[in-house]
Design a binder for these strands. Structure first.
Lengths: 233, 233, 233, 233
DNA sequence: AATGAATGAGAGTTCATTCAT
DNA sequence: GATGAATGAACTCTCATTCAT
């Protein structure tokens, strides 16, 4: 151990020549902003490469901090992952429920609006990909999977099944099986999301139309099957 | 690529002879069945734990061989993965296409039968989960993703879109947008598959009905929207 | 080296004045007691968990300051350790030497008293455990080991060997080899100390008797071997 | 990923020049010998630097294997430590007990022989230092401490206390307190061991005499106090 | 002067892959 | 050909120390 007080950085001439390591970027104290920055970095990288293939240090680097800093905010990569998921999926369900409760008018129209809104706000971007990531990692994070089922999947299904039932009771829809219908309303969006993220590079699967047009067409198709027309049934 | 599809207990003539002789060499037993056994083991473990979380040694152990032996058949874990995927997805498309070409009768009925058949033969079991795995790993194995798109996704879509168009031309279906319709036919099955594999433990999402009943209802719902009814459109 | 030994609640005149004024600045309270508080915290934790297993931050927390503050008083964990050891071992040797010089009477009695006193004041408590810590870390802190040998071990041995020689010269003791005798006088106490600290939890090694009684018996045993009896040498 | 089959080691010219890394030493398969080699390496390094300051990789290197190899034999550094301790302390207790049971003659002589033997076989070398290491780490490995107490400390004490009692009953020894006597017999050897290992470099504490002579003198001193002389008790 | 956020070298451990047997 | 011991790059996480606030 060298005598205290002699820092001796310049003693070693080889250090002087090392240009790259010369001046580390100045530290910044951004305690409040760090968690979100880390979550955002984690989201971006998990989206890009998946959970297992993303190294902690990459996340830190992307957030502009050093490796150790990450661990001041999240005790492990797993916990960071969970926090990232939680941060990205509380999105808009309560809001949509409130909107639905107040709505007056044809349910079909409301469903169309809600789906378009979800796609625009969630499905289209990284936040939507969290659904994919969650699905991929569900078995490795059982408690998180339960959380996701309780906080996202079930509320969403409740919301939509409520609307379908409203439509049936009002006579707007035929007496369709509710659960199957709910699935039919959700599946296309999720499928589009997953497909584009996984294979978008190799399969621009709907050459003529954009995402929104495709979803519109799908919704129209489904609503056509739902509506109680003059043909009875 | 080693021979695939030969179960091979008796295929190897050396085994037959050694039964007559004094000591059957257990080392050589089932030698040419090894590749398939490794693929099966890999499938089971990738399905159960995912690609990254499955260790090569586990796969070998499950196939009843030592770790080093695996590498005699596949040069890396990645290649084993690719082989496993290829081994599990060629299934039934050509067959279905032939069946469809010969079919006479309402397209709606054919679609219903094909979907039920796919679910029974593929979707329901491990082979179906390969679709999920493929989706998960698509970005890590681009060439495999392309292969999958070319060999599975596009042929399937072609097959179905051909049927939809046949239905439209024959007047059985309304003049719906074909591509959106194809998606609507595929999405529910895939969604069910993914959902059950990921969250089935926490969310038995359709309590009253079995998978088949749910799919039936969904198909019915969709076909109802497709059929050209007396109401015109 | 910061001032040691000043408890210092009132030593700092700024505190006295601020009591009269409006707001006493709590930041400056006990400022010059910090070094001792840090040493005490370090002692307690090193005793409890050892040097390597004690984190700097724990020491700081135990002393009621933040991690960074520790480094204002000691330039490194190593230096803090050394200061802690030095702070805890100067004890009582000079004092005992003076007492021994003045003593008139049988040496055996003096030895007994000194050992009992050492055990009561040093061996029994944390200060005694510093001997163990010093021993453990001696090879990692050579200069400290030298300091310990020079300032503690050798003076102690000198003191005791002087007494033994006094006893021999006066005819109270047999003509025993001095060095071996000194070791025999020291070893039991150190052994008891080490044993209890290391294994006390698992081995209450002398069920019937307390520490003091055990040591008494050991001293008696040894003195019996030392005393020049009527049987000659 | 490069095409399978092109290993391409020589493609990169920079590799050719790297002299140091050119040829790694050839692998050796020595499954049976490895555990002991690792234990020996661990012992040597723990003796030299302590547990915390010894890196796993150093142990492996000293045993002539790579880092990973260590973990084929011991699942963690902790377990390696425990195994090392166990490997070094079963030493000779049972053997000594058998020898003591058969012995005919003065107990004092037997005690002298046993202690000389222990010092020669254990105390003198690395095996003896395990006692120190065990003491140092006792609190970090409670279960190991218990093992040590049960398997080493208590049997040793039993053996010696049995002998002391034999001596008292036969009239060879005075009616001394047994437990204190046992401690007095053990403490000097342990003390010598610890002292030399910790401070031997700075304090050759008994200049004139070797270890054995010192221990001899100590034993003689103690036995003199034990023996029932003509002076009565 | 005090704080605690930030750093990054370094430690333990894993595991895909290699290769001596 | 089969084996599994051996390898070492890569990864997660720790913590003594620094420094912006």
């Amino acid at each position: 151990m060298p005598p205290v007080g002699s820092a001796g950085y310049i003693t070693d001439p080889s250090v002087i020549n090392s240009d790259i390591l010369a001046t580390p970027p100045p530290r910044q104290r951004r305690k409040d902003a760090r968690p979100q920055e880390l979550l955002d970095a984690a989201l971006a990288l998990f989206v890009e490469k998946g959970f297992a293939a993303t190294r902690s240090e990459e996340i830190a680097a992307r957030a502009g901090v050093a490796k150790g800093t990450l661990y001041r905010y999240y005790p492990s990569k797993d916990e960071l992952f969970k926090a990232m998921v939680r941060d990205n999926l509380s999105v808009h369900i309560a809001e949509s429920a409130a909107q639905a409760a107040q709505y007056q008018g044809p349910i079909a129209e409301l469903l169309r609006q809600m789906m378009q809104a979800w796609w625009a706000k969630v499905g289209h971007g990284n936040a939507g990909v969290v659904c994919k990531i969650m699905m991929i990692e569900a078995r490795n994070f059982p408690e998180l999977a339960r959380f996701y089922v309780d906080e996202v999947i079930r509320p969403s299904q409740s919301l939509i099944s409520g609307l379908v039932m409203r439509g049936i009771h009002s006579g707007e829809f035929r007496a369709v099986p509710v659960e199957a219908t709910v699935h039919m309303l959700i599946a296309p969006m999720l499928h589009l999301l997953l497909h584009e993220h996984s294979f978008g590079e190799h399969d621009s699967c709907h050459e003529g139309m954009g995402d929104e047009a495709l979803l519109d067409a799908q919704i129209a198709l489904l609503l056509h099957g739902l509506l109680a027309g003059p043909q009875g049934t």
